[in-house]
């Protein structure tokens, strides 16, 4: 059929720009990144690339023995394991809140809750740095007003990560809220009405109607939020430069420092590959867990 031949020809034209761009500027660099992690690419190689040698697993071995690396792993996992679930919980709670039947101005509330999502991270990180100021920050000001002692949020290694998590939750919860609201609105009203007629209380209705219906949304939100939280970078870069005492240096910040401050691109690529490994492991774990149920 010549119409199909025409289509195949047109498809080539339509696809070429996208495939060329993605192939050349995404897949190729990703593969090169894997290879780079097995080389000693450093500042000398930046000047003359023929100096690069394969060093096998040396970068991996070096990193696994480095305290800086493990501290970055711990910080990143702290951020992911506390921040991501917290963010999803707030999203779910606010979704249930705005989606309560009979709420007026639902659209307005949704827009307000969503606003932080579209703000540039750098700008709001700077705003929050001032909110966290030990002396002039609004947060301490209000805490003291209700009798809580001031906290040096970004200067105390025990509080720096919680402070960044708080900012991240504020910035992100609106996104997943929208997904949960869409999920909630897809549940047929009759289910709730029938359950109410049968005398089911609110908790029963949540447990046996709402929660199971949101299952697919949960999986999607769980995976994408986790992947996103693994990419912690701009917050510590702007607010703490990874400090105090390295308490907010994330894996990506470590990658950036190794790569673009010290020009050890081989080591930096190894950090990136290991970060990818963590992300993938987390994704597979969630997929398996969801299938197990």
């Amino acid at each position: 059929m010549s119409l199909e031949r025409e289509q195949a020809k047109a498809a080539r034209w339509f696809l070429t720009p996208a495939l060329l761009l993605i192939g050349m500027f995404f897949f190729l660099p990703v593969v090169a990144g894997l290879l780079l992690s097995f080389t000693d690419f450093d500042i000398y190689a930046v000047a003359s690339p023929d100096r690069v040698r394969f060093v096998g697993w040396r970068n991996y071995a070096d990193l696994l023995e480095s305290d800086t690396f493990w501290s970055a792993v711990r910080n990143t996992l702290y951020f992911v394991l506390v921040g991501a679930p917290l963010s999803v919980l707030v999203s779910l709670a606010t979704a249930l809140l705005v989606n309560t039947p009979g709420v007026k101005l639902q659209g307005l509330f949704r827009t307000i809750y969503f606003a932080p999502v579209v703000t540039p991270l750098v700008a709001v990180a700077i705003v929050w740095r001032y909110l966290y100021h030990p002396r002039y920050g609004l947060l301490n000001h209000w805490m003291e007003a209700v009798g809580i002692d001031a906290i040096d949020w970004l200067g105390d290694p025990r509080w720096s990560m919680p402070a960044i998590i708080l900012l991240a939750v504020w910035k992100n919860f609106g996104y997943n809220m929208i997904i949960f609201v869409a999920g909630l609105q897809a549940i047929p009203r009759e289910l709730y009405e029938a359950a109410s007629v049968d005398g089911a209380g609110p908790w029963w209705r949540f447990r046996y109607i709402t929660a199971p219906s949101l299952g697919p949304a949960f999986l999607f939100v769980g995976i994408t939020t986790m992947v996103g939280f693994f990419q912690l970078f701009a917050e510590p870069y702007v607010m703490t430069q990874g400090g105090p005492l390295g308490s907010t240096r994330s894996l990506l910040l470590l990658m950036y420092e190794e790569g673009f401050r010290w020009w050890r691109l081989g080591v930096a690529s190894t950090v990136a590959v290991l970060l990818f490994g963590f992300t993938l492991a987390g994704t597979l774990l969630q997929l398996r867990f969801s299938r197990g149920r």
């Binding site: 897949f27 990703v30 691109l265 990818f276 994704t283």
Partner: peptide, 20 residues
């Protein structure tokens, strides 16, 4: 094959992309 790319964080390729 293309959707596989969704699994890979862009940062993995960022350093080679810079070199390229």
């Amino acid at each position: 094959a293309l959707t596989l790319a969704l699994l890979v964080p862009a940062q993995v390729g960022m350093l080679p992309l810079f070199l390229l």
